[in-house]
Design a protein around this nucleic acid. Sequence first.
DNA 1: TAAAATCAGATTGTTGACAATATATGAAAA
DNA 2: TTTTCATATATTGTCAACAATCTGATTTTA
Lengths: 237, 237
Amino acid sequence: MTLSSITSISDRQTLSDQVFTELKEAIIKGDLPQGSKIIEDDIAKQYGISRGPLREAIRRLEGIRLLVRKPRAGTRVVTLTHSMMEEIYTVREALEGMSARLAATRMSDIEIAELQQLLENHQSTIDQSKGKEYFQREGDLDFHFRIAKASNNQWLMDLLSSELYQLLRMCRHRSSQTPERPLRALSEHQQITEAIANRDSELAELLMRRHISGAWKIVNTLLSNENNMIDNTEGKS
Amino acid sequence: MTLSSITSISDRQTLSDQVFTELKEAIIKGDLPQGSKIIEDDIAKQYGISRGPLREAIRRLEGIRLLVRKPRAGTRVVTLTHSMMEEIYTVREALEGMSARLAATRMSDIEIAELQQLLENHQSTIDQSKGKEYFQREGDLDFHFRIAKASNNQWLMDLLSSELYQLLRMCRHRSSQTPERPLRALSEHQQITEAIANRDSELAELLMRRHISGAWKIVNTLLSNENNMIDNTEGKS
DNA sequence: TAAAATCAGATTGTTGACAATATATGAAAA
DNA sequence: TTTTCATATATTGTCAACAATCTGATTTTA
């Protein structure tokens, strides 16, 4: 077994894997704007690789719905329309509801304690700096991610964390823009956690679904307002 | 607009798309057995293409979880383990429950009539030839697919029809193997349809979820029995 | 004999070039 | 001026060869 220390070699990622990860980040951060065209030669040069592995990465990104391809016409970054956001929130409600239900049964006492700890951190963060949206946003995802993990269902976890959450992060509109939203969200998180701690799966699912559909209602109005503003300022089309 | 008739050219599928479809069928039908290794050169020659487009197809199949890849170690057809089947049924319960809920609101009267017609066909099929499992199986998927479509949610439809249903079809174990199952399933389908016809979304979701978790219980025992049989016959490992 | 090292064959990862197609540009016609 | 057509350019689709890595069999060594 003298070679055991070289396992890092076989774990080495493939070029396609690397560029897949980097492109994903670039899309989510907005470096590659929504709707922009992916020109293979440009991207390939930019990352210093050939088009072969790049195309494989593109196919994978297509698979998780970050890119949209039309045969022979090119590939574009997905555009998050209003109705698409609604669809995503709907799927999320179903999946996370189930996730919470399972977590209520399967989450270990330690994980529950950690979850409660997380919420206390959020609490104090809100108390201190009201405006820090960023933490609120990522903290929210953190909460949801832990519950997805605790579902102990690989499929649920994958769908949520490697597909839905990415899209969610692409959507700049933070429900926390409403001043009272962070507090409200926190209290809902606490309710959900309590239901899980009580091993009440029915209630956990119900509360999670209500939490998400409530979040959608906020995002929905924010999106509508923005659309109206665009109509008013840019007008005429 | 003299070119409008040639749109068929631009719709022409790419080699990668074609082989993607064909490989998918081969996997589902079992021509490529579960756990078998995908050797790129062999498959490429078999389909008369080069490895480039094939690899793209492989990445896509990886994306919908029909293939599993280990960097530099090769790609294999997914193996449907017992626990994986359980995970799939759980996700399906969440997604199809939501689907039924939406369908209850959004399905047109015509679609509902067609759905009822479909069930009548199933009824008579069962009356005539009790054993025709095949039709029962595909008919079941047909029913569920129509409801997914009626949800009018592209994401739900995609996840169900292009991912979950494929895996489901890979699982040879038909719940209809239990003699009384087809009748039971049909009656549950009728109940669900009735709830949709009454525009009762709550009930439609509830019934759909119960229907699927019930189906899982049957499949579960079938799988367990088979495992026991294997243990008894092949023994010793 | 059993464990370790070595080597050859098989398989995957990557590249650059070529072919097929789409898009943009500008000239000709209405 | 606007539309239509033809051409050139840009971009995607495909291929075959090369390089890197893994796998399994054989040989060597203890």
